[in-house]
Simulated scan of single mutants.
Amino acid sequence: MRRYARSLITIALAITTVTGTAGWASGNTQQAVTGPPPGTAAWRADRVLDRRLPDPERSTPAEVSVFFRGLTADQQQTLATRHPLVVGNLDGVPVRLRYRANALSLRADHDPRYARLAAPGRQILAFDPRGRGQVAEVFGNLDTARHVAVVVPGSDIDAGTFDRTNDVYGTPAGMAKSLHARTGPGSAVVAWAGYTTPVGLGIDAATGSLAEAGADRLTRFADGLAADGVPEPAVFCHSYGSVVCGLAASRLRARDLVVLGSPGMRADDVADLHTDARVWAAKDATDWIDDVPNVEVAGLGHGPDPAAPEFGARHVPADDARGHTGYF
């Protein structure tokens, strides 16, 4: 009976897992946005080039890259103009063509949440308005960068909160800007909010279903960067984003995985991630995530603390960080 009671307590604690950047809040169950980009049906039917276009759902990023390299500049621009939502979100399409396509999509979208994203000069690498909206933005020059990083954020992040002005370092854009400012010329940083994140405290934050969908999208995104000749990145995984990275690790093209403020990676230790990437972890003493129990019971909770010595990750000092969003 005592063991049963302890199990119930553990499950209850797991449910309280809060893995987002917005703190203690009521959670709402989310439906993950998956599948090919919006506009795929019209893309599949288009014969403007007198040939079949690569299927966004079935073609690999490498196959997409080969197709676009075989087009003239005018043909590429034609596709971007006719199908901006597909071209802008299709991994394997040349980076600058994706910027162009997403600028067109954002100018055509009159949702006030996205007005800031449409500002001239922004390098929007992905823009999917479905659901709460997904965005990726580049800081620096991906074409010439010798060192590349990708920032994967946690809960409560979407197209509307991607670069909110309050709690700047709790947003993917703020994290990426800060990281790029420190790494300087020769580097590029991608703020990748390319998956459906949990909202506040709720079952989504305590389970891995949204992270599993996010892991698929993250691995395909990284494959697209590789197909375009971008160096293998260091991936910075914050909060629930580290759950995404943990589930993606075995197939993710990454030089390093840097885990910050993690509730767990759904792995027992570094070896259990099955990755050749170097794994780093940090958690500052004032981060409330430290109060979240590192358990996984009946699918609830995300397992051991990656910042604990026994997990086996390389230690990143975080003495100067403050709170859950102070790492950058």
Rank of each mutant, 00 (worst) to 15 (best):
F221D: 03
P263L: 00
V259R: 03
G312D: 09
V66G: 02
H110S: 12
A173N: 03
A126S: 10
L257T: 04
F328P: 01
G39M: 03
A285F: 13
S7M: 13
A108P: 03
G39F: 03
T21A: 12
V151T: 06
P304A: 11
G208C: 10
L8W: 09
D305L: 01
P233R: 05
I289L: 15
A222Q: 05
E63R: 11
R266Y: 07
V295A: 10
P153R: 08
A248S: 12
D305V: 01
R116V: 10
A318W: 09
D228V: 01
H302Y: 03
E212H: 13
V297T: 05
P112T: 11
A108H: 08
D46Y: 00
V150H: 08
L97M: 07
D156E: 10
V259I: 12
R98D: 12
R146V: 09
A227P: 10
R255F: 01
A267F: 07
W192A: 13
A73Q: 13
A277Q: 09
D256K: 11
G35S: 01
N294Y: 12
T29S: 13
W288V: 08
D287S: 06
A267R: 14
A41C: 02
V199Y: 15
F139R: 11
H147S: 15
V230Y: 06
T34N: 12
L49H: 01
Y169D: 05
G88L: 03
Y99V: 06
R220N: 14
R322P: 01
S250H: 12
H180Q: 14
R146E: 15
R182P: 00
R52T: 15
D91I: 01
D268K: 11
Q30M: 09
D223Y: 02
F328I: 00
L273G: 05
A318V: 12
D276V: 02
G170C: 05
T275G: 08
I15T: 05
Q76Y: 02
L300H: 06
F68E: 04
A321C: 07
E232T: 15
H147L: 09
P84I: 07
P304K: 13
R122I: 00
P185N: 05
F311W: 01
A126H: 04
L85F: 08
R314C: 02
A145K: 06
L71C: 11
V235C: 01
A222I: 05
G264S: 14
G326E: 05
N166F: 11
A318M: 07
G131F: 08
M265F: 01
A176E: 07
L273E: 06
P304L: 10
D216W: 14
R113V: 00
D55A: 07
D305K: 01
L225H: 00
D163I: 05
T165L: 12
T17P: 14
G202L: 00
R3C: 07
L300K: 07
T81H: 10
I15R: 14
I11E: 14
L247W: 05
P185R: 09
Q134T: 04
S262P: 11
S239D: 03
P293Y: 02
